[in-house]
Amino acid sequence: MVAIAIARQTVREALRRRVFWIFLIVAVFLIGLGPVLGFLTPKESQTIMRSLGLAVILLAGLFITIVTCIYLIPVEIERRTIYTVLSKPVQRFEFVLGKFLGGFAIVFLSIAAMGAVFLALVYFQGTTRGPDAGVLVWLTSGKFPKEMVLGVVLTFFQMMLLAALTIFFSTFATPVLNFFMSFGIFIVGNLSSVTESLTTSKNGLTSAIGKIIHYMLPNFGNFNVQNAIIHPTTEISNQGVFIRNNIIYALIYSAVLLILAVIIFDRREV
């Protein structure tokens, strides 16, 4: 399939870029700093290592996603390679879809790599596994901190949504403009608890604006679950439903952004 071929090529190109590797290596290094804080009590050390690890995955994922995805389409136009591609029997929607899939794959690879390092550290820190427990025993004993995987998975879907947004902007905006727009919407989208409170404001105008922001803009704050999961004693109700809803939300919103990107890219002169 053409879109898959384009996606594969997109990933290859992204992996050739040094900036991707720099972000990834720095992130892995920062995650590795977590156990250095072992001078605190085991509980505090565990909390700090987990919060630091998840935060680094989020921050590195954020920069990798934006820096990689803002160039996916503009660079093809700037280098004029898009002419070569579109002169072949390739539909424009296939091109955009391929770029989307390529962007998602990059996000997946980077989050998965950082997540693996992070979970390995959680294992070696030993707070949850008990003395001398092997990896398999740890994974199957029920002591494995599943909520850490949940944190990494939700970060992936958050970044997937961000990648979709960035690629959507890249169909009509310059990379610099795209960077600020994506980053700005990411920050606004992280204020979900604030925007939700705006929706119930007594002022009609504020409430209307709050509703538009809260329900129409991509809501990145939904995926921030760190506070509840890094504290082992916090009990979370409806966790499965919450995760499922968030994943569905990310998929639907990404699909919407993909359709919009296709519509805009179709009308664009290249």
């Binding site: 804080l37 919060s51 935060a55 989020l58 921050l59 992280n190």
Partner: peptide, 10 residues
């Protein structure tokens, strides 16, 4: 804003 509340606190 960037989701760093707990890391900053830690």
């Amino acid at each position: 804003l960037l989701g760093f509340r707990e890391a900053a606190a830690g």
